[in-house]
């Protein structure tokens, strides 16, 4: 039996863990929405500020899950957690900024260029959590629960013990983020099926 044991959704103005609001955007704050969420986590990880929004989104989603359930992800061995992420925009949000750096600002920025691949977020999650397991980033025309269901199952069948998955819709201010953890043989959680993937991850079905 496989189940979704925790999920975090982030919209343009709220952050939810397992459907419950854990943070709301403070419009008065001088900080960006993602910086507010980072500060809410009260963790020390200065690298966060160097990440692009796509990586920050995956980082925040996974950290909120970890904060709600301490030990949930760290109970696995190094090779056992697979990363399965997707979106529709690839790294377009940063691609646009990198293009501006050489078209309008005089010089191509190396620190932007290294984020112009969508799978960089997998690297950031791997570094943060010491995940040496399987990686997959796919670009889909729209949110597709079957992709997560099918490839998630495949990752278990091929040896992974847990799958950290996510939909990271980030483009020019749009924030449609969900990160969810799929585990097997756990008493709690929602059964890993299409309906629940939609519930936990669909951008149209945010809590």
């Amino acid at each position: 039996m496989r189940s979704i044991t925790a999920y975090c959704q982030i919209s343009e103005d709220a952050c939810y863990v397992n459907g419950d609001v854990v943070a709301q955007k403070n419009e008065e704050s001088p900080d960006s929405w993602f910086k507010q969420l980072y500060k809410d986590l009260a963790i020390e990880y200065p690298k966060f500020y160097k990440m692009d929004m796509l990586s920050q989104a995956g980082f925040l989603g996974s950290e909120f899950i970890k904060q709600t359930y301490p030990g949930l992800i760290s109970s696995y061995a190094e090779d056992e957690v697979a990363l399965l992420f997707a979106n529709s925009e690839s790294s377009a949000d940063t691609d646009i900024r990198f293009k501006e750096s050489y078209q309008d600002k005089g010089s191509p920025s190396p620190s932007l260029f290294v984020y112009t691949l969508p799978n960089i977020v997998l690297g950031e999650l791997a570094i943060r959590n010491k995940f040496y397991g399987e990686n997959m980033f796919a670009v889909l025309p729209k949110f597709a629960p079957d992709f997560f269901l099918q490839y998630g199952q495949i990752m278990f069948e091929t040896g992974s013990k847990a799958v950290l998955a996510g939909w990271l819709g980030i483009l020019e201010g749009k924030v449609e983020v969900s990160v969810f953890l799929i585990e097997q043989n756990k008493p709690d959680g929602l059964q890993f099926n299409k309906q629940n993937v939609i519930k936990c991850a669909s951008p149209d079905d945010q809590a």
Partner: peptide, 13 residues
């Protein structure tokens, strides 16, 4: 034959 992937968990670039 089946193949696999793995992350370095070290650096992004």
């Amino acid at each position: 034959l089946s193949g696999t992937s793995a992350n370095d968990a070290n650096h992004i670039s």
